[in-house]
């Protein structure tokens, strides 16, 4: 009889100790899990940069934004069509429908996805999403594996196959051979409260087709544009949640 009591007592204490240990170790784990999930769901409370491109105002043969971007960010041209690097470029989009829709010249840049596939595949987190939603490459860390170039569904990423010797803007670094390149929405200008180079250039030629602003602020110009127009994003079916919106696509 005494023996069974002892065994029952032993099991009881064991269960209690086990539950205590599980609580002690599991609780911080659970709370940290919840905290990280919370961070992932809310990119930033303050600022979330996005862009609206109004194709009805974009002149078809104009390359002001492309040229301004190359000047600002020291993106050189190699003369080799397959090796050329663009942070923003003009592409021609044709309708797959049989209905007669004229092909459109569309400025294409990094879409700064909320779920960026490039950052997902980057093995060393050289590509990452900043807290304000800008997807950016850290060239110090990039090792040139080109996974991001393959992963991007918008072909908005390029690779520096050779070093660029043109440096029109000495205030901004250039890139060495062997790092990936993409639009960072001119984060160095946005952080100083200025407009990105392409937007400034578009305003400079009085077209005003590009607009960059805070998507979280309902009073901003970009939020008003998205509210008042029918906007489309590229390849919304992929679930990448791009933050570049097109009017008149």
């Amino acid at each position: 009889m005494g023996k069974t009591m002892e065994r029952r007592k032993f099991l009881k204490t064991g269960a209690l100790v086990g539950a205590g240990a599980a609580g002690a170790y599991g609780l911080p784990l659970l709370t940290s899990l919840r905290a990280s999930a919370g961070n992932a769901l809310a990119p930033s409370a303050k600022c979330r940069w996005g862009m609206v491109i109004d194709l009805t105002k974009c002149p078809p043969n104009c390359t002001a934004c492309v040229d301004a971007c190359k000047r600002e960010n020291n993106v050189g041209s190699t003369g080799d069509r397959l090796r050329d690097i663009y942070r923003i470029r003009k592409v021609t989009i044709e309708s797959t429908l049989a209905v007669g829709v004229a092909p459109k010249a569309v400025p294409l840049l990094c879409n700064h996805c909320d779920e960026p596939p490039c950052a997902l595949v980057c093995p060393i987190k050289a590509t990452y999403k900043r807290e304000d939603g800008i997807v950016i490459v850290d060239p110090h860390r990039c090792m040139g594996c080109r996974y991001c170039v393959i992963a991007c569904p918008y072909n908005a990423r390029h690779f520096n196959f050779r070093e660029n010797d043109q440096r029109p803007n000495p205030a901004y670094p250039k890139r060495q051979r062997g790092v990936a390149e993409s639009c960072d929405l001119c984060a160095h200008l946005l952080d100083q409260g200025k407009q990105p180079a392409c937007v400034a250039a578009c305003e400079g030629i009085q077209a005003k087709a590009l607009c960059v602003g805070n998507l979280n602020d309902p009073a901003s110009e970009i939020s008003a544009l998205i509210r008042n127009h029918s906007v489309k994003r590229l390849r919304e079916d992929l679930g990448t949640e791009p933050k570049v919106f097109y009017i008149g696509l």
Binding site: R130, I134, I136, D138, H140, D191
Partner: peptide, 15 residues
């Protein structure tokens, strides 16, 4: 400083 500027976007010490 590099990590502060690249990762957090804090550039106040650059000017």
């Amino acid at each position: 400083l590099r990590d502060q500027v690249m990762r957090e976007g804090r550039r106040e010490e650059l000017t």
